[in-house]
Design a protein around this nucleic acid. Structure first.
Length: 517
RNA sequence: GCGGGCGUAGCUCAGUGGUAGAGCGCCACCUUGCCAAGGUGGAUGUCGUGAGUUCGAAUCUCAUCGCCCGCUCCA
């Protein structure tokens, strides 16, 4: 995180004003890195395949689209929280409380330290669970002590509040209250139901009367435009539609740097196919995606494949693989490959009242296509690239002096800067002129960085720290001081090995292009 | 949202009621013929923000924002 800020990869959004929770800005180098990832994904997914087309959908999304998809209903459940276990329960699924006696505690005193903690909690002990008032009280106190430990004693109180220091501990009234909801597992009175909707809503129109949502996933615009893409592109099943773009979720608790953000970018494919092919294609896409990660420099052994078991998958999914990466903060999901069946086209066909079936001319078969969805988190992958690239290398020089070299070992394809260009000595005008010529030449093809400040060794190390794979140095040999043979040659210094090789200036561009694209 | 920890220069951090600090980094000049050499000079802080206590607050109190950890959540 520190390196990211210091070298301009990632800053916190709104940092000047104290920061905006769950939002991040990419600085110059971060923007390059992210751009490289997205471009590479697009090239591999759209450009180099015959069966995938791209699109770029609107972020603002009609309410009806998200009603049909289930997001408006599914994401807007009222939830109640249990103050004892912190469990969250859907308010509409909590069973009615049985008759019983309700105990309210107002706090507890630690018997050793005498410290009093105030915390109100109400527990309903059903009539069936008690033989007499005293045993119900015991059960209540036992629950209560789970919160404060065995050495605590609940505070005395009345219905209206705590009276003083502990002895008898509670107030009670017979029977459940009219609007109260209790945790069926432990009888604890739950918090008031609150809406937990993960979608961000906005208004527009002259008077702001129209509602729109910021999309919670890029997928929906693909489903909604599926028929338009099909009709306008002379394409046959199976085929996919790919999209890279921002999505938004009102995450309750953003965490782990950019890993879980409220605004994030997705790289998604919705692959439409015949129902018989869905399971097979899901496995195929998993393999395709795994080799993608290998190509960008995330080794297979750092990836874990989770075959999400029954009961934990989304309700519409017949199979889901999570592709997870070993982040420093744990093994976490980079991408989900989900077989979504015909759920999405089904709900939109019904919701919009318009047929979305596909007619196969060859088999004369009419059916609703099924969908396989490889959905990758762009920001998460950028974070994985940085984590994977980061290295602190121990060096020992000829004099035996220890040194630590910070290196980001990005694959050249992903590296924000492809090549550093240095004149060996800033005061040598000829070296500077040649270096600037080379800079001009290479700039048309790739991101380069010109530097003439300080000793050349320091410049190499600065580039190591931002992951520049190659550095070119123009020296006295370039000028022909060691004879005609070395004239117009430069040295290329490799980031990972620190080794150097000499090369004609004319050979430089093709040599680099072969490696950095 | 709950519990705990934390917030001082770009970074890492010292500073427990009395003049705002160090190392590294950064900028300029000198030096430098290939791996963070050296020298000289320089810039940078509403001590996260707001309120309170005090003659006086980075330091004490409260609130708030943000970060980290554990829960929770994450179709």
């Amino acid at each position: 995180v520190s390196l990211c800020k210091r070298r301009g990869f990632i800053f916190q959004a709104g940092e000047l004003y104290g920061g905006l929770n769950g939002c991040w800005d990419y600085g110059p180098l971060g923007a390059e890195l992210k751009r490289n990832l997205k471009d590479f994904w697009w090239r591999k997914t759209v450009q180099e395949r015959d069966d995938v087309l791209g699109m770029d959908g609107s972020i603002l999304t009609m309410e009806q689209v998200l009603v049909s998809s289930g997001h408006v209903g599914g994401f807007a459940d009222p939830m109640c929280e249990c103050p004892l276990t912190k469990q969250r329960l859907r308010a509409d699924q909590i069973p009615q409380a049985e008759p019983g006696i309700e105990y309210t505690f107002h706090g507890a005193r630690d018997l050793e330290s005498g410290k009093v903690t105030e915390k109100q909690i109400t527990i309903l002990i059903p009539n069936g669970k008690q033989e007499m008032d005293r045993s119900a009280q015991k059960i209540a106190i036992q629950y209560y002590r789970e919160l404060f430990g065995k050495n605590s004693k609940p505070t005395l109180g009345t219905k209206d509040g705590p009276l003083g220091l502990p002895d008898e501990a509670y107030t009670y009234q017979p029977g459940p209250r009219e609007n109260g909801q209790y945790n069926p597992e432990n009888g604890v009175l739950l918090s008031e139901p609150r809406m937990f909707n993960l979608m961000l809503k906005t208004n527009f129109g002259a008077t702001g009367e129209q509602i729109a949502y910021l999309r919670p996933e890029t997928a929906q615009s693909i489903f909604v435009q599926y028929k338009n893409v099909l009709d306008s592109n002379r394409i046959k099943l199976p085929f996919g539609i790919a999209q890279v773009g921002k999505s938004f979720r009102n995450e309750i608790n953003p965490r782990n740097f950019t890993f879980r953000s409220r605004e994030f970018e997705q790289m998604e494919i919705e692959y439409f196919c015949h129902p018989d092919d869905g399971m097979r294609l899901t496995d195929e896409w998993l393999e395709t995606r795994l080799s993608f990660y290998e190509e960008i420099g995330i080794p297979r052994e750092k990836l874990h494949i989770l075959d999400v078991p029954d009961g934990e998958r989304a309700f519409y999914s017949k199979r889901t693989y999570d592709i997870e990466y070993e982040f420093p903060f744990g093994i976490q999901e980079l991408e989900g490959v989900a077989y979504r069946t015909d759920y999405d086209l089904g709900v939109h066909q019904k919701g919009a009242g318009k047929p979305l079936e596909y007619f196969d001319e060859e088999t004369k078969e009419k059916f609703l296509p099924h969908v396989v969805e490889p959905s990758a988190g762009c920001d998460r992958t950028v974070l994985a690239l940085i984590c994977e690239a980061f290295d602190e290398e121990q060096l020992t020089d000829e004099k035996g002096k220890e040194d630590v070299r910070t290196v980001l070992r990005f694959k050249p394809t992903m590296a924000p800067i492809k090549v550093g260009i240095f004149p060996l000595l800033k005061k040598n005008e000829e070296q500077v002129r040649i270096a600037k010529d080379i800079q001009k030449q290479l700039q048309k093809w790739m991101t380069v960085f010109y530097d003439d400040g300080g000793a050349v060794g320091r410049r190499y190390r600065r580039q190591d720290e931002v992951g520049t794979p190659f550095c070119v140095t123009i020296d006295f040999d370039t000028l022909g001081e060691s004879g005609e043979e070395l004239k117009d040659t430069i040295t290329i210094r490799h980031r990972d090995s620190m080794a150097q090789e000499r090369m004609k200036i004319a050979a430089l561009l093709p040599w680099l292009l072969e490696r950095v694209r």
